[in-house]
Nucleic acid binder design. Structure first.
Length: 569
RNA sequence: GGGCCUGUAGCUCAAUUGGUUAGAGCAGAGCGCUCAUAACGCUUUGGUUGCAGGUUCGAGUCCUGCCGGGCCUACCA
């Protein structure tokens, strides 16, 4: 039995996440967590909301609420939706938790002790009307290069020229539109990542089994230009973790908070502390401190590709630089993006299907299956309503659901709602057991390697094998001359249901529970195909379950396609 | 502009990392079955691997150039 620590990239608090966000980290992380638990491993699966930063403050202001209240409410919404999708977090925390405050301040103190923090005085644009410093992106003006009048302070979207906010003609606040801006001097802390460069490179180079998508992004940052740059880790904001050196004040840093990307990954650790404080566990350090029992933990992170630099460089800088024996990530699984009907999903533009809407129209298993079996592992992938309808109807309703339906109903009509006795397994059953064992081995290998789409394809093939068997064995014909043989075939086919339930549970937990429940058992991972297909003896009662997956009708698809074609208001 | 990823059947994806005749699923066509959610099974049509060169006994895979799509580019997160 292994011990596996799994974290999903923590979703930003600002609004409800869309299906692209879901398949980019939380859903595959959940698949892996469920699988590893089913295999008998000890798993700690953590996620949280990422609550700090300018967008959270602005979203709260727009909602007319204090930011703490806004975040607390949005946490509840995200927690509820996560449960709706059956995300099996051991704890769903908050980066604004007291545990994260303490830990973030602790890390900053340790980094300062190690001489890895330097103070930098810099000039930044301040908006008097908004009462805040403005990040470059929140300053708009006319591009000096092309004359585009909505250029942002970091880059002109029209001509793609990199800009400084001071380059803009007629600069104004993107928040209020105010032109009452001034340049102010402000002091910030920088993490000396440049001093960590060799250690980081050595660490990245040791990760030969990581996907190219992950290591190439890390190397680019290490080597581009003058190499890895120091990074500002504080901001002039109200909402965030106050800058402190451990539990001591930090002279000159009064009123400032840590940058959201500094405290967000630390929440992975703090979340474990929250898990203990919530009474769900009793020792979080054995998951995170290699001097306190975590040396044998395998730590796997899931994230979208845009998150990779922060997980391969920034966060490891924090960990390594602290000089303390914290657990570093062992494997990073990163994902590309899911597009929606020819364009990107967009939270800010309200484009696509969002988690709350998805659950309003269909149960979570439909989404889980489609999204996971089309996970954007090698490149961006695309959601269309036609593909979704077609795939879900075929895979879930026709192949799996109908298999359960046809054999349970056949048995009920010929033998009653009890696994029939009599007859013995013959060559057909032996052959199928051998095939299923091979497929089981492959399925497990794909799941171990976190090859999500390949695992889904193999699972589907396992379902198909049941229909092939029934067609070839034809118990409805055999029954007429040899009821005993028909009983054996039926018994064998009924035994496939709990087998399928166990294997399918990581993908479609609700349907798996229904299938197993109908057969009067719990979904469990099979030791072998041989053992699993002898599990239910003759005489074992069962019930015919309701239709597992109702099909998506053309009218439904058309209605949804129309309903979600515009932008969310 | 720079870096990286990507382009394979109508659609979604494979191809043991340079090795026989490029494979699956869906969709399409034909046949079969009648237990089942008009479901299932079998057979089958379909490819100049974005384009043009090059290296090699051999290229989807490596190199060069071009074309298209994507991500990042350090103060959005």
């Amino acid at each position: 039995m292994a011990r596996i620590l799994i974290t999903s990239a923590i979703p930003y608090i600002n609004g409800i996440k869309h299906l692209g966000n879901l398949i980019g980290s939380q859903l595959p992380a959940d698949l892996y967590a469920r699988y590893m638990r089913a295999r008998g491993n000890e798993v700690l699966f953590l996620c949280a909301t990422d609550e700090h930063g300018t967008p959270a403050e602005l979203a709260a202001a727009k909602a007319g609420k204090p930011v703490a209240e806004y975040c607390a409410e949005m946490w509840q919404v995200q927690d509820r939706l996560g449960k709706g999708f059956r995300l099996s977090f051991d704890h769903f925390g908050r980066s604004s938790s007291p545990q994260n405050h303490k830990l973030t301040q602790h890390f900053a103190g340790k980094l300062a002790e190690a001489g890895l923090i330097r103070e930098v005085s810099e000039k930044q644009v301040y908006s008097n009307a908004d009462g805040r410093f403005l990040p470059d992106r929140y300053i708009e003006g006319t591009c000096p290069n092309c004359g585009y009048d909505k250029a942002r302070g970091d880059q002109c979207e029209n001509c793609t020229k990199q800009l400084d906010p001071t380059d803009l003609i007629n600069p104004r606040s993107a928040i209020s539109g105010s032109t009452d801006l001034e340049v102010r001097e402000t002091k910030h802390l920088y993490l000396r990542q440049s001093a960590m460069r060799d250690r980081l490179r050595e660490w990245i180079d040791s990760k030969t089994d990581w996907p190219v998508l992950t290591t190439s992004i890390a190397r680019k940052w290490l080597d581009d230009g003058d190499g890895l740059q120091d990074r500002g880790i504080t901001r002039d904001l109200d909402w965030g973790i106050p800058v402190k050196k451990g539990d001591q004040d930090w002279p000159g840093m009064e009123g400032k908070v840590f940058y959201v990307w500094f405290d967000a990954p630390i929440e992975y650790i703090a979340c474990a502390a929250e898990w203990v404080d919530a009474g769900k566990g009793d020792d979080w350090e054995r998951w995170w401190r290699t001097d306190k029992g975590a040396e044998d933990v395998a730590y796997v992170q899931f994230m979208g590709k845009d998150n990779v630099p922060f997980h391969t460089l920034s966060f490891p800088s924090t960990i390594l630089g602290s000089g303390e024996p914290w657990k570093l990530v062992d494997y990073i699984k990163s994902f590309n993006y899911l597009n929606y009907d020819g364009g990107q999903f967009s939270t800010s533009q309200g484009r696509g299907v969002f988690m709350d809407q998805a659950l309003e129209i269909l149960p979570p298993d439909y989404w889980r299956w489609w999204l996971l079996s089309h996970a954007p592992e090698t490149s961006d992938s695309e959601f269309t309503w036609e593909a979704f309808q077609q795939d879900v109807n075929k895979d879930l309703a026709d192949v799996l659901g109908n298999f359960v339906s046809r054999i349970t109903k056949f048995c009920r009509s010929k033998f009653g709602e009890v696994v029939p006795e009599g007859g013995t397994y013959g060559p057909q059953e032996t052959a199928l057991i051998a095939e299923l064992q091979q497929r089981l081995d492959r399925y497990q290998a794909h799941m171990d390697a976190i090859e999500v789409r390949k695992a889904a394809a193999e699972l589907r093939a396992i379902w198909v094998a049941g229909n092939e068997y029934l067609q070839a064995a034809g118990p409805w014909t055999v029954f007429k001359e040899d009821p005993d043989r028909a009983a054996a075939i039926t018994r064998f086919a009924l035994n496939l249901i709990p087998f399928y339930a166990g294997l399918s549970a990581p993908f479609i937990p609700d349907a798996a529970a229904t299938m197993a429940g109908a057969m009067g058992v719990e979904p469990t991972w099979p030791d072998s195909a041989e053992a699993a297909l002898h599990a239910l003896p003759g005489g074992h009662p069962f019930t015919v379950p309701d239709v597992l997956f109702a099909k998506i009708a053309d009218e439904d698809r058309e209605e949804w396609a129309a309903r979600f074609s515009g932008v969310r208001t």
